[in-house]
């Protein structure tokens, strides 16, 4: 079986390899260029490159604009991650444990922010905040709520997937041995789904950290996430300081995905949703 597969790859090898090379180049070259720009010694990246220096990294640490945006995004992502993980995990438990008329609809509702255009969701929330005048327009809590909506589908998707794989009999065995529902859940179920919960929260963090669309209508000079700060600067110039900020964001994404690969089996991961 596997021999046949290897043979197949070899036979179609060259074309597949060339095609994959092109795809990987398109995916990764822009990322490498950001790293190069952040590390180059000239005022901007030119061909041929001038040399390597850390001046832009230092400039980033002194930059009011980008450092504060980076830290803002980091804090926002942490808060979003915490809230989304709690809300999302509880909801996922409910959805997978109890089937009732409309449970599929409920599931679809929780996953729907994935498919709603981000700019449309941002606009809808902005209209709601402004028209209800409850102090959420262009506010920090308003932005956290927007980020929760777009990150919770990831938590719910990952946690539901790991709950589906969990054998409910184990929890029932604990119950029959006298454990209270809460104890049984805490001591038996939770350790078994904790990888899924953690993977979901890593995704929530990174999706919030890189979120542009829903932040667009929410940002103010005081509340500026990194993607928005980069966007405003990119409209006028290619600042290497921005690329230096990008290097740290890239590092964060790489670390997050390495953690995810340890937590869940990436080979089973297909499609954008997790189930």
């Amino acid at each position: 079986m596997s021999k046949a597969k290897i043979k197949e790859v070899n036979e179609l090898g060259t074309l597949v390899k060339i095609g994959s090379g092109i795809a990987l180049a398109i995916l990764l070259i822009p990322v490498f260029i950001v790293v190069l720009t952040g590390l180059n010694s000239g005022d901007h990246l030119t061909f041929p490159p001038k040399g390597i220096s850390l001046r832009w990294i230092f400039a980033f640490f002194k930059s009011e604009e980008f450092l504060s945006a980076f830290l803002f995004s980091f804090g926002l992502a942490l808060i979003t991650m915490t809230l989304s993980t709690i809300f999302g995990t509880l909801a996922a438990i409910f959805i997978t444990r109890f089937s009732f008329p409309g449970s599929q609809l409920l599931r679809a509702l929780f996953l729907s922010p994935l498919i709603l255009p981000g700019i449309v969701l941002g606009l809808a929330l902005y209209i709601f905040y402004v028209s209800t005048d409850i102090g959420l327009a262009r506010s920090y809590p308003g932005m956290v709520i927007a980020h929760m909506l777009v990150t919770m589908p990831y938590v719910i998707g990952t946690v539901s997937a790991s709950l589906f794989n969990f054998d409910l009999n184990l929890e029932q065995a604990a119950r029959s041995l006298g454990a209270s529902p809460l104890t049984a859940f805490r001591k038996v179920t939770l350790p078994n789904i904790s990888n899924g919960v953690m993977a979901g929260s890593v995704f929530a963090f990174i999706v919030s950290f890189g979120q542009f669309d829903v932040s667009l209508f929410m940002a103010t000079p005081n509340n500026t996430p990194l993607p928005i700060a980069l966007y405003w600067s990119l409209r006028y110039t290619f600042e290497p300081t921005a690329a230096a900020a990008g290097i740290f964001a890239i590092a964060l994404v790489v670390i997050s995905m390495l953690i995810t690969s340890k937590l869940v089996n990436l080979q089973k991961f297909s499609g954008v949703k997790f189930d």
Partner: peptide, 27 residues
Amino acid sequence: RNTFLMILVLCAMQLDMVIRLFGLMVL
């Protein structure tokens, strides 16, 4: 190797689009 390729694709997907566009615009 499979996990490595998956991580590459996922990193490219999860990285803030503005940063990826920065690279594309410099290019």
